[in-house]
């Protein structure tokens, strides 16, 4: 612009607040109503029924059920293994994302597909898949079927995509100039990674870790054929719930289910908080 304006400067850009969503119209309001009824019938009321059923026995009953020797063992195994697997995923998932974004080699595309396989593969098939390499007929000669290692391996398999897929897009969007600036200021590759790259990846890693923890804690299908479901040894929480259901004992099933639901809910809240913090930082 050639002309000059001597008006006291206004902040550049549009000061109009970012347009929030529209208020509901009659049609969209009706749509929301239908959607909410469906969502309630399908998800909210059934989950509420789990909590209500668990609450029927009172706090004492709930506590007795979840501290029952066998149940407590399944919960310890499930949560402990899920934590361990999440830890492995944090390291390996970040590493895989790094290689997928920053490295280039023939067959990278195939690796991309492999990452998603555990997500799309039916869990019962996942169990069979692992059994074929690590089971009784293993060409490697290792047989971990019906051991706690099998539980670990099954969790590791089904949670593979979560950290990779949350970290990958963030890594791809990172501004290379920040890294170049750090390098120009004398930072080594390792220092650049730790002080420049890692801090921006932390929210994504945390989100992926939370998702993989939740997924592992609730895992069932891949263990059916693989872990043997031996009480006190390889039985996980979901299996315990199922056997309560099959033994016509919905109250104790609901009590254990509430513990798993609490984990899911905690993960959801955690993700929501992370998301908001990322949005605020822009």
């Amino acid at each position: 612009m050639t002309s000059t304006t001597l008006v006291p400067d206004r902040p550049a850009g549009d000061r109009r607040p970012a347009r929030a969503g529209l208020p509901l119209t009659r049609v969209s309001g009706l749509g929301l109503g239908v959607a909410m009824v469906w969502f309630s019938l399908l998800v909210l009321i059934p989950l509420a029924a789990v909590v209500a059923t668990a609450a029927e026995g009172g706090w004492a009953g709930f506590w007795r059920t979840v501290t029952n020797e066998q149940t407590a063992a399944t919960l310890r195994l499930t949560v402990g293994t899920a934590l361990l697997v999440t830890l492995v995923n944090v390291v390996m998932g970040t590493l895989i994302a790094w290689v997928l974004v920053r490295d280039h080699f023939v067959g990278k595309r195939a690796l991309e597909v492999l990452i998603d396989v555990p997500f799309a593969l039916p869990t019962i098939v996942a169990g069979l898949v692992l059994l074929s390499l690590y089971g009784p007929d293993s060409p490697l000669g290792v047989n971990i079927a019906n051991t706690r290692i099998a539980v670990f391996l099954a969790f590791l398999f089904v949670t593979l995509p979560f950290v990779v897929r949350t970290v990958q897009p963030v890594l791809a969007e990172l501004d290379p100039e920040a890294e170049e600036a750090a390098a120009s200021l004398g930072a080594s590759r390792l220092v650049t990674f730790r002080r420049i790259i890692l801090p921006s990846l932390i929210p994504a890693i945390a989100a992926g870790a939370a998702l993989s923890f939740a997924r592992a804690v609730g895992e069932y299908g891949s263990l059916v054929l693989l872990s043997g479901n031996l009480p006190m040894r390889t039985e996980v929480a979901s299996v315990r719930i199922l056997s309560s259901v099959e033994n016509d004992n919905p109250d104790s099933a609901a009590a254990v289910a509430v513990v798993l639901l609490a984990v899911s809910l905690a993960v959801i809240v955690f993700l929501d908080v992370i998301q908001r913090r990322v949005v605020r930082r822009g």
Binding site: V43, L211, G218, S264, V269
Partner: peptide, 25 residues
């Protein structure tokens, strides 16, 4: 906001809990 968060719930709920919840209702 609550709906947005709750919609992700099915991804982190154990399939066995899903089945149990449906049976209870």
């Amino acid at each position: 906001r609550a709906l947005n968060a709750l919609l992700d719930m099915p991804l982190s709920v154990s399939p066995i809990v899903v089945g149990l919840a449906l049976i209870l209702v």
